[in-house]
Amino acid sequence: MVLMQPDQLYNLPWRPNLPLTRDDLDRMPDDGHRYELIDGALIMTPAPSLRHQSVVVNLVCLLKAACPRDLKVLVAPFDVVLAPDSIMQPDLLVARSEDFTERELPTAPLLAVEVLSPSTRRIDLMLKFSRLEAAGCASYWVVDPDTPELIAWEMRDGAYAQVAKVAGDDEARLTLPFGVTVVPADLIL
């Protein structure tokens, strides 16, 4: 993971102390990296590992099987636009079908999920957590494939409250955005 400021970017105008925006993000190269903006700072991450992608696929299957018809489950890369200077690509997201455009989700999702990796752990647990909380994302989960562990938070009175923290074969019975039971050990198979 590389965190870059505007004056460090290749092929972008030098704009000291100005946050990057969607227009800047649109000019990034199609080079196999994932580019996101959080409060105007560019975050670049390499392609995920096999274990990471296995967890994402297993979560997608689990969520798709329980997902109501009026909601949609998607995986990265797909832009979630929280503000002109905050465009994220959660590993997995759930939102109302009607909220999507062909290009992006222009509002906070109902659920954002990140699978932790050494290069993204701090970003996922701190920056993305606080930015999604501020945007009103109803539920945020992180999965640590190394433990394996799931931590889930839900919005309560404008702030995230932890509603589950389970590891191994323990079950998390979650209700937002819809009822689903998650067993972390099952996600790494």
Results as ranks from 00 to 15, higher is better:
residue 50 L to D: 10
residue 121 R to L: 07
residue 63 L to Q: 06
residue 54 S to C: 15
residue 73 V to E: 08
residue 126 M to G: 15
residue 51 R to D: 09
residue 98 E to K: 10
residue 124 D to V: 03
residue 124 D to H: 06
residue 71 L to W: 01
residue 76 A to V: 05
residue 82 L to W: 11
residue 110 L to F: 10
residue 41 A to I: 14
residue 148 P to F: 02
residue 145 P to M: 10
residue 81 V to I: 14
residue 121 R to Q: 10
residue 136 G to M: 07
residue 32 G to S: 02
residue 148 P to H: 03
residue 49 S to P: 01
residue 38 I to S: 11
residue 79 D to T: 05
residue 21 T to E: 08
residue 81 V to H: 08
residue 50 L to H: 14
residue 52 H to T: 02
residue 150 L to Y: 02
residue 111 L to Q: 11
residue 143 V to M: 07
residue 36 E to I: 14
residue 55 V to T: 07
residue 106 P to E: 02
residue 44 M to Y: 00
residue 73 V to H: 06
residue 112 A to C: 09
residue 63 L to G: 03
residue 69 R to L: 13
residue 62 L to G: 06
residue 98 E to C: 06
residue 60 V to T: 13
residue 21 T to K: 06
residue 114 E to D: 12
residue 136 G to L: 09
residue 112 A to Q: 06
residue 106 P to D: 06
residue 142 V to W: 13
residue 125 L to E: 14
residue 94 V to K: 03
residue 102 E to V: 15
residue 118 P to T: 03
residue 81 V to P: 00
residue 74 L to K: 14
residue 28 M to A: 12
residue 21 T to M: 06
residue 70 D to Y: 13
residue 83 A to W: 04
residue 69 R to H: 13
residue 43 I to C: 11
residue 100 F to G: 00
residue 105 L to F: 09
residue 80 V to E: 00
residue 90 P to C: 06
residue 42 L to S: 11
residue 36 E to T: 15
residue 97 S to C: 12
residue 120 T to R: 06
residue 142 V to F: 09
residue 113 V to N: 05
residue 48 P to T: 04
residue 23 D to R: 08
residue 52 H to Y: 02
residue 76 A to K: 08
residue 149 E to H: 15
residue 72 K to R: 13
residue 107 T to E: 10
residue 76 A to Q: 03
residue 132 L to I: 08
residue 97 S to I: 08
residue 55 V to A: 03
residue 131 R to K: 12
residue 115 V to F: 00
residue 54 S to W: 13
residue 41 A to H: 15
residue 21 T to Y: 04
residue 49 S to T: 15
residue 121 R to T: 15
residue 92 L to S: 10
residue 119 S to Y: 01
residue 61 C to N: 15
residue 40 G to C: 07
residue 49 S to Y: 04
residue 76 A to N: 03
residue 112 A to K: 09
residue 89 Q to P: 00
residue 82 L to K: 12
residue 110 L to E: 13
residue 39 D to S: 08
residue 129 F to S: 12
residue 24 D to K: 10
residue 143 V to Y: 06
residue 83 A to G: 09
residue 145 P to H: 09
residue 90 P to V: 09
residue 149 E to C: 15
residue 86 S to H: 05
residue 51 R to C: 02
residue 80 V to Y: 00
residue 143 V to D: 07
residue 139 S to W: 07
residue 111 L to K: 12
residue 131 R to P: 06
residue 119 S to K: 05
residue 26 D to R: 13
residue 103 R to A: 14
residue 108 A to G: 08
residue 82 L to E: 09
residue 81 V to W: 12
residue 51 R to Y: 05
